[in-house]
Design a protein around this nucleic acid. Sequence first.
DNA 1: AAACAAATATACAGATCTGTATAATTATGT
DNA 2: ACATAATTATACAGATCTGTATATTTGTTT
Lengths: 187, 187
Amino acid sequence: MAKDMRERILNTASWLFQSRGINATGVDAIVAEAGIAKMTLYKYFPAKEDLILESVRRHSREFTEWLTKRLERTAANPSEKLQQLFDGVEEWLANPQCNGLSFIKASAEFPQPENAVNRLSVELSHEFRDCITNIAREAGIRSAEALGLQLAMLIEGAVLSEQLTKSSDAIEHARQAARILIESSRR
Amino acid sequence: MAKDMRERILNTASWLFQSRGINATGVDAIVAEAGIAKMTLYKYFPAKEDLILESVRRHSREFTEWLTKRLERTAANPSEKLQQLFDGVEEWLANPQCNGLSFIKASAEFPQPENAVNRLSVELSHEFRDCITNIAREAGIRSAEALGLQLAMLIEGAVLSEQLTKSSDAIEHARQAARILIESSRR
DNA sequence: AAACAAATATACAGATCTGTATAATTATGT
DNA sequence: ACATAATTATACAGATCTGTATATTTGTTT
């Protein structure tokens, strides 16, 4: 089916981009890993950049949506959502197929502001921050924007640290820092 | 002079890697920008990877050394060093030629643990964290390791945010978060 | 079964990449 | 001034990359 084909290409590309790097992953590698013909890929994605853009966007939004739903599932009230933030991040990082935040990696490989991938990365990083800010706002934090940004930065740093040094205690210390910042915002 | 040549190559490569991306920067681009012959580059650096490794290492160590000296220059005592941490980071980021932390970008482009560039990135991220931890320890923080890691994560997140969105208020909020975490570590 | 669409296999063009070979040119030191 | 070393210019080999052309095979629909 045509829809399956697009999905398969997108999933394969997403995985290879994230695990081997975007520029280090050639179209031929994606085609081989997905087990499809090259012409099929170029039918659904006229250029590699289209595939990069959609892969990064998808990967990032899957994370924020997953996190949002995970918190809605396990938290009894808005305040608990905020407290369980790093439990969610930890659970997400525990997946061995996890390879970090896609918009961070993408922005590192395409650092120039006029580049389409970089612009998308900026957009996605704002979406992510807004997601955290909304949780803070719903939890009744007055300075939700400030705390949201602070927690977002902390998560980004924690994910980076955990990616660089697997099974470090980065998440544990980030969670403790978050507790302190949240409590401080409540007063 | 031979030493100048090596320096020039290293500085040019460092700049291009950081501002355009490592894999996106070809040897020919480095050679053109440095105004030298390709053979000269390959005389001092037998392979591009050697140039990557030394550029990333240099860029990272220059930052941590700069930050250390900046704090020693402006702070009257160890405790002030800790408090001025984000003033230093802000000053460093204010340089328009600043393009973020090199070991973060390098690890994004070379994500595989067995890769030499990735291993170096891990090493440099530890050096950076230890630098912050030492400042915390000298400032008399009991849990210096914990606070050092927390502040390092916060700095990494803040640098990322500031790189993605220029002249945002990321540093300002990161500094405030640091104040709270430091004060909390003192009690 | 016939007609149409989708996917494949293969080959290739053209650009770019890393790294090398070779000969000419410039600097340097004695 | 002369010998030696360093740098340059140019060309190129071989690999790899993105994207396309073309013909064949497979799958679906009616």
